[in-house]
Design a protein around this nucleic acid. Structure first.
Lengths: 210, 210, 210, 210
DNA sequence: GATGAATGAGGCTTCATTCAT
DNA sequence: TATGAATGAAGCCTCATTCAT
């Protein structure tokens, strides 16, 4: 009678430990030993639950992406149905809180972007997360266009969505590496102003922001 | 008969080799041996010219930053005096060519952002480069505001400049990790549209772009 | 099912291997690889049980000192209670056997004295061993003085003890580096004669020696 | 017309630099670069004047030995002709000043004893120096015996001389590694007392010491 | 003689991974 | 499942030595 498997929790525990260590030492710097220590596990156990260090990274990225997505959706929910409010919520969810919140996730996100350059699987997960964001934004934009709230040429929606995601991503990098360059509290507002430029929102609407 | 020192060139040679290797293997993955090989030098020579691997990184970052700055200035020169043209040139210099150009530099830039998280010196250099960009942009914006080309609240100039730099930085990340998300050729235009939103450029002006 | 730790034995095994290698190649010359080989272990294992090479040295010194102390005490036991016999036993234990015995320990002792110059911890252990010897001798001398066997000014006891220890230490060096200078079998006798000079032992007593 | 050779001075300069560096880093720790720096020379020059690092060591040992011998002879000169005074001068020359004097030479001496274990040439030089000391002492002792100042069995002279040299050597080690064990100023006196034991000097004579 | 660059071997250490228990 | 030991491959760095100038 095999004891009930706890592999799932263990895996999450280990993946989370990697995020913790990776945030301050990077992926290469996160040794199995350090990960095990952070997870309060014996080193040998790590390779019982994961084939390789890379597998842990993949699990960690999945965790990171999932938790981020969940958070965004939670923030988006109240604004459901109102494109402008949704757009604003989307931006705020990323930058109003995200600006200072969870520096660990921020650091990991940067690390992951680096690993994505060299690991196809990581790249896929990372790009997938970005794509989801773009798609989410594009959906909002399309609805806004349909409802005449946004004025955006059909074909430009994807470009616009990508631009906003790029801005958010760029703010992440700045926040993590050159925070002083961002006037406090300006990220979300400036992004909103930029989005206004993209979607032809009126000045009036823009002023109303925040 | 003192031999003429060739340390300066050697250092540049080695730093450039690091950029080459780092682009495809990351900083940690760029072993001294690999760097030496890429520079066509004996391994031992690397540590003759550099105290440590980290020193090479610092030199490489300096090189990267300097060459980037030079390129930008070259692109900005023709537009000197015309704020709108300068802004456009600034964006184009980063995203029109940069989009596909020099993937090596792009990858290195991402790597460096990651190292900046853990190394104060790298962080300083990286943040310094971003700050230069922000300052350059802010100067353009201030002039534009003074000349009534841009409408931008005094205090928002820095925020606006940071926002544009963030967007560019974000496009770099997307270009390196999720290129498919960027409709070809859209980066510069979308950024211009966003900048228009920030600086209150009229539709008319916007259409004229590119 | 925690595996029973064998670290203690392994550490001793490795420390002993260091002594072995150090005896013929010196401390610097004792590479981790050579130590591992002498201990019949994989190289990587050495650093599993020791933080650094220096830690091995410290353990080895402790071992060396302990084993030496044990040997001395064993030799001293039969003479317990008779100051003169104890003094003689102390000298013989170091020089009668020590003269030719265990050249490995002898060489290591010299090496350690050298390392003590540069490593505070080693110095502490080395000086501690010497101090123990001095104290042991001083205790014997004090008792001898109390019992009127030795005539020794109160304050000179420590100086006398140190002098004898110095002589022994000096013989070690000579034995290891210039054996020919020591007429065979003369070390213990000459030291005894010198001790007699220090403690005012009568000629008669002196002739009785050995 | 070749420029006049300065090799001799250069060699001495380099050998002396080795002594300086070796005193604080040991022989292995004295890299050619460090030696060159200490000698204010370019690294490449060292191997122009010496075949190998080992050659420098041999030269340095010779220097050390020679300078020591010179110093001793200078100290011995005033006492020439009086065996007891010579003996005392010999001891004082080594321990009265030597106790605290020239810690660099002291450290080097310990280092050299260690190298002597592994290098036949060094061993020869080191043992030679000790032998000279023993012979010098033995000559003094023989004369003292002839003049009835010392009472020392014919055959024991060499053993006695070796014993005194051993004591001195041992004091060197103690002075360098466990100075606290030597009551200040006691080394020479205690050695003299020991020598008295060896040479049957009367109490009266002993008290006159110092 | 002198200089600074070049070479390549080797050392300490870290680490992902495997394994016996 | 879990543990701690074991393995061996690199990696960074130091260094004696050689060389071109």
């Amino acid at each position: 009678m095999p004891r009930p498997s706890n592999t799932a929790e263990r895996r999450a525990q280990i993946a989370r430990a990697l995020l913790k260590v990776m945030a301050e030492r990077g992926y290469e710097g996160a040794s199995i030993g350090a990960i095990a220590a952070a997870a309060h596990l014996a080193p040998g156990l790590v390779h019982y639950h994961f084939e390789s260090k890379r597998e842990i990274l993949l699990a960690a990225v999945a965790l990171l992406v999932q938790e981020h997505a969940d958070r965004i959706e939670r923030r988006l929910a109240p604004a459901a149905g109102d494109p402008e409010a949704e757009l604003r919520a989307f931006i705020d969810a990323h930058l109003r809180v995200g600006e200072g919140a969870d520096p660990q996730a921020l650091a990991c996100w940067i690390c992951v972007s680096g690993e994505a350059l060299r690991d196809a699987e990581v790249q896929k997960a990372f790009a997938g997360a970005l794509e989801s964001a773009v798609n989410r934004l594009a959906a909002i934009a399309r609805r806004g266009a349909r409802e005449r709230v946004f004025s955006c040429a059909r074909g430009d929606v994807d470009a616009a969505a990508a631009a906003i995601v790029a801005t958010i991503q760029g703010y992440f990098v700045l926040a993590a590496t050159a925070r002083d360059l961002i006037p406090p509290g300006s990220a979300a507002d400036a992004t909103w102003a930029m989005a206004s430029g993209l979607f032809g929102l009126s000045s009036a609407t823009r002023k109303a922001s925040r």
